[in-house]
């Protein structure tokens, strides 16, 4: 009788333990589910007004195929305007119209936009920060650059002394807007003051890049390294290579020329005085 009683007591304890164990398993599953959800590409802890480079650097810490990848990017400016990129702590020769380059994720790239319509002589110095990349079919990477469009209105606001933050995102096809996109046009939304453009972009798709422009200009002695964010390396995409060439040539490494500082990439071709 006594052993039976003891065994019964142990069984009751075991039942209680089973219950505790079940609750424990449920709790662990919940934690795992939450952690798996948070591992998605959503910027829970970021804001669009964070300092330039902060979000990109955080993204790099997530690992994956981001570090060291030069994401082809197309900078589109209004007709007549010219764009310069920083090469070796100096702005290179300005090119008219859109310009393509490969940018590293997590770095800040300073641009110079001149010949702004209606504002002759005015120079605007926007920055571009890539916080993610895209994955086109190999050999067709150059056909699908990330388009960063600087509109005439953006430049006008910057000339007036206002700060413009534009978050470029890839639209979620599951929640796509049923609108036809014309060539050269980009779906664009304005958010009100107090709203976070990064969070709005997160809700619409996957943020890829952040464009910032305002009235900040270099000092009287020219652009300082701080102003140029250390002049990070970038790749110049040769204009002679078109989409068909790239498609027939999966290995496109020869189509991209280095134009950044030597210490960043270890490639000297096209490097300036770094």
């Amino acid at each position: 009788m006594v052993p039976t009683f003891r065994f019964t007591a142990v069984t009751d304890r075991c039942r209680r333990s089973y219950l505790i164990c079940g609750l424990f398993v449920a709790l662990v599953n919940c934690i795992c589910f939450v952690s798996t959800s948070e591992a998605q590409q959503v910027h829970y802890r970021h804001r669009g007004d964070m300092p330039p480079g902060a979000i990109g650097q955080w993204q790099l810490q997530r690992g994956g195929p981001l570090p060291g990848y030069f994401q082809p990017t197309e900078i589109i400016v209004p007709t007549g305007s010219k764009v310069s990129l920083v090469s070796g702590f100096h702005f290179d020769e300005a090119e008219q119209g859109s310009r393509c380059a490969g940018f590293l994720i997590g770095k800040i790239y300073r641009l110079k936009v001149t010949h702004i319509p209606l504002y002759p002589g005015v120079e605007i110095f926007p920055t571009i920060e890539l916080i993610d990349r895209i994955y086109p079919p190999p050999g067709r990477i150059l056909e699908f650059p990330v388009p960063i469009q600087i509109t005439a209105n953006d430049l006008k606001e910057a000339v007036r002394g206002r700060m413009v933050t534009r978050v470029i995102y890839i639209e979620d096809p599951g929640h796509a807007i049923p609108a036809r996109q014309q060539p050269g046009q980009q779906l664009a939304f304005d958010v009100r003051q107090g709203e976070d453009p990064l969070k709005v972009a997160d809700s619409l798709g996957r943020p890829i890049a952040i464009l910032r422009l305002g009235a900040r200009v270099p000092g009287p002695l020219g652009p300082s390294p701080q102003f140029l964010y250390g002049s990070p390396a970038w790749k110049q995409i040769s204009l002679s290579v078109n989409a068909n060439d790239a498609a027939s040539k999966p290995d496109f490494s020869g189509a991209i020329l280095m134009a950044g500082p030597q210490q960043e990439t270890g490639v000297t071709e096209g490097a300036d005085d770094g």
């Binding site: 534009r166 709203e195 990064l198």
Partner: peptide, 17 residues
């Protein structure tokens, strides 16, 4: 079909004014 479509969200702040 690989066909990414991009959009943008803009915020304008009139800090200097």
């Amino acid at each position: 079909v690989y066909a990414p479509r991009f959009g943008s969200v803009r915020l304008v702040l009139g800090v200097d004014s």
